[in-house]
């Protein structure tokens, strides 16, 4: 399991190429990348706050849960905090497994849980000022899929 919480940018392609490398038991890798997307009014920037003492532990617990539920060769989670610009990568998840079904399901699970259970908070700045992104009810409801 690789979990990185960092303020510096990362290269998703480079990370993918190095992930689960040299593992002949791995037949499938699924990745998801989350990017800073534009919003109505024009996004000038995004700031991501996190809870330093808790963040890595919370992500590791979510990744460990994924490893229990599915047969995974490895899991990678990278999540940024700090000041980001439109189009910047925010985070990525990668899962490696023997067959694709486990890797797809685990990546989907990881994203649902990272969205609502990893202690990050996004603040968007537009021409109208800066405001915290509100959590969506549908994101919370998405967790029910896995219970």
């Amino acid at each position: 399991m690789i979990v990185r919480v960092q303020d510096i940018p990362f290269d998703a392609g480079l990370e993918l190429n190095g992930f689960a490398k040299g593992r002949p038991d791995v037949g499938a890798i699924v990745t998801f990348s989350g990017l800073v997307r534009d919003v109505p009014g024009g996004l000038q920037g995004m700031e991501i706050e996190h809870y330093p003492g808790m963040t890595a532990k919370a992500i590791e617990a979510i990744a460990a849960e994924a490893q229990q539920r599915w047969s995974l060769a490895d899991v990678l989670v990278i999540h940024r905090y700090g000041v980001l610009e439109p189009t910047d990568p925010i985070m990525m998840v990668a899962t490696a497994s023997k067959h694709r079904a486990d890797a797809f399901a685990a990546a989907d699970f990881l994203m649902d849980y990272l969205k609502s259970r990893a202690p990050f908070w996004k603040k968007e700045t537009t021409g109208d000022g800066a405001d915290w992104v509100a959590a969506k009810d549908e994101d919370e409801a998405a967790l029910d899929r896995w219970s």
Partner: peptide, 12 residues
Amino acid sequence: REVAFFPPMTGG
């Protein structure tokens, strides 16, 4: 030892 209060999280 430590109690933290925050809004619903918006990771991902």
